[in-house]
């Protein structure tokens, strides 16, 4: 089971976060400042992901993260920065965060990202062929086959599918896709990502009885085996 460390000084926010994680089938430990968070990380408990708030009394998020990283603590960290803190977002990534979210965020967005970070740990980075059920993606010759049939994909569709395969069984939000696949951080206003997904879906699922690429209402997408 995924165990999350929450470091957030606002008690109410921390508790609702804890509950949200619990609903998603994870467990969470809450600490309310940087010192306590650091102590928890140094302690015996194993954490899969840390959700770290930037603004805290005493030791702030950036400093705490820097200390933890300098001590060789390499647990994935999701950094929470306040609205408008564009510069702080950059600081967070520089300090060693693996992902970031701007407050206020949607809970589904946070859950999807925590899940992604938690799973990332046990991925084999040198895989050359990714397999999900009858779907097979060869990263060397960049070929995708479903049940042996070659699927012709544009480069971006390939990237999109690769990301979905790497997060198989997880919810993937539109913002995550824009950030991780297109490498942009902005609000696309409308359904641009949906259109790309539906084109990918038409190539991936057309002619097969069982769809693999699912839309999760209000949350995003999920690739299922």
């Amino acid at each position: 089971m995924t165990h999350v460390l929450i470091v957030e000084d606002d008690t109410e926010a921390a508790l609702s976060l804890q509950r949200g994680l619990k609903e998603a089938g994870m467990t969470a430990t809450v600490t309310h400042d940087g010192e306590a968070g650091l102590a928890a990380l140094r302690g015996d408990a194993e954490f899969d992901v840390v959700v770290l708030d930037r603004m805290m009394p005493g030791l702030d998020g950036v400093s705490m993260l820097e200390i933890a990283r300098s001590e060789g603590i390499d647990v994935p960290v999701l950094f929470l920065s306040a609205l408008g803190d564009l510069e702080n977002r950059v600081y967070g990534l520089k300090a060693g965060a693996d992902d970031y979210l701007v407050k206020p965020y949607a809970l589904v967005e946070l859950l999807a990202r925590v899940e992604a970070l938690a799973r990332r740990k046990d991925k084999d980075p040198v895989e050359t062929v990714l397999k999900v059920g009858e779907l097979e993606m060869n990263l060397i010759n960049r070929q995708v086959k479903r049940a042996g049939t070659l699927i012709d994909l544009q480069p971006r569709e390939f990237q999109l599918l690769e990301f979905l395969i790497r997060h198989v069984g997880q919810n993937v939000t539109r913002t995550m896709l824009l950030e991780k696949v297109w490498a942009y951080h902005f609000d696309p206003q409308t359904n641009v990502i949906d259109v790309h997904i539906s084109r990918l879906r038409s190539k991936l699922d057309k002619g097969f009885d069982k769809p693999m690429l699912h839309t999760v209402r209000g949350e995003g997408y999920q690739l299922k085996a």
């Binding site: 564009l86 942009y184 951080h185 902005f186 609000d187 696309p188 206003q189 409308t190 641009v192």
Partner: peptide
Amino acid sequence: GNRDFLAQSLANLLDNAIK
């Protein structure tokens, strides 16, 4: 410039045009 802000601007203009 700031890539994300410029991307946001182009997104807004393109979105308007399509809309």
